[in-house]
């Protein structure tokens, strides 16, 4: 299988000015992974762990401090020429968290789907474009009549996110990055949207990078999962293996916090009275710099920390 996206030892340091001194903050401390065609990788972690920074570096929105990113074997270095940037943007597309904020409220659905085609597929005629748009809508299961002439405020959250997905797919990217695509949707429609992602990834042999804080949803989309904490990948493996045999304390902390209707808080209080302090200790532990990855099983690695 071909590797679509490969990330090697990625570092990102932000400099912040605090009064007269400059303070540096290491958002990413050596991240490596790869995504193959038709495969999905879930990056799971809490807010501030660096998962969205990773996405921003991959889309080229900001430069990495060190390390390399390559798409289909071509390294991403400063894309100076407009043509280079266009090619890159056609290969990598992104779906954002906020389904409303990422659509222009003054434009119709048609505009949102037509624009990427005009920019990246200028050879298409008007009729061909319309064909393509209709095919896209069908693919994301937006079959309502007159949907093309509707404005974002006339759509539900789930429909808006489907429009965003169709927009991203319009230019036929090879890599799709989805940054918390369902966290602002009602729980009741999350699963449908996730299943759609999975289906599209398989049909079109996309490489999908699924970024989330909800490890419970990873299994619906991702073949592999990487758990991030404080700028490092603390555990990596096939989703199945990782969820069934979590090794790193932070992964176990995440899993123990997934809402579980079979355990009431009343019972939790009695059983795990010390949860908050334990959570604090695990977070402190997981912040330490890593030494190396220990292989726990086939395709399952755990970070050893100092």
């Amino acid at each position: 299988m071909s590797v679509l996206l490969s990330v090697q030892n990625l570092h990102k340091t932000f400099l912040q000015r605090q009064g007269l001194k400059q303070v540096s903050f290491d958002a990413l401390r050596g991240i490596s992974f790869s995504v193959e065609a038709g495969q999905a990788l879930a990056l799971v972690g809490e807010s501030g762990c660096g998962k969205s920074t990773t996405a921003r570096l991959i889309t080229g929105m900001m430069p990495a401090s060190s390390g390399s990113i390559s798409i289909q074997g071509t390294p991403l270095v400063n894309l100076k020429k407009r043509r280079q940037r266009m090619i890159y943007r056609r290969a990598v597309q992104m779906v954002f968290q906020d389904p409303f904020g990422s659509l222009n409220p003054t434009r119709t659905v048609r505009h949102h789907l037509e624009r990427p085609l005009r920019l990246h597929r200028s050879e298409l005629s008007k009729v061909q474009r319309l064909h393509r748009i209709n095919a896209l809508l069908e693919r994301v299961e937006l079959t309502e009549t007159d949907i093309l002439s509707k404005y974002p405020h006339q759509l539900s959250g789930g429909q808006r996110q489907r429009v965003n997905l169709a927009r991203a797919l319009a230019v036929e990217p090879s890599i799709l990055i989805a940054d918390e695509p369902t966290s602002m949707l009602d729980v009741s429609i999350r699963l449908d949207v996730l299943k759609l992602f999975r289906q599209l990834k398989e049909q079109q042999q996309l490489g999908l990078l699924y970024i989330t804080h909800d490890i419970a949803t990873a299994q619906y989309v991702a073949d592999e999962t990487a758990v991030m904490y404080s700028g490092q990948i603390v555990e990596f493996g096939s989703t199945e293996q990782l969820i069934n045999h979590p090794q790193h304390p932070y992964t176990r902390l995440l899993l123990s916090s997934v809402p579980d209707p079979t355990r009431s808080y009343q019972a939790l209080l009695e059983q795990e009275e010390d949860f908050r302090h334990q959570a604090d200790r695990i977070r402190q532990f997981s912040r330490r710099p890593g030494k190396e990855y220990r292989k726990h099983a086939d395709n399952h690695f755990v970070l050893l920390q100092e």
């Binding site: 729980v187 909800d214 419970a216 899993l255 123990s256 809402p259």
Partner: peptide
């Protein structure tokens, strides 16, 4: 529609 059904009531 609750996600994560496979994680409920697990011993770990």
């Amino acid at each position: 529609a609750i996600p994560g059904r496979h994680l409920f009531g697990r011993t770990w």
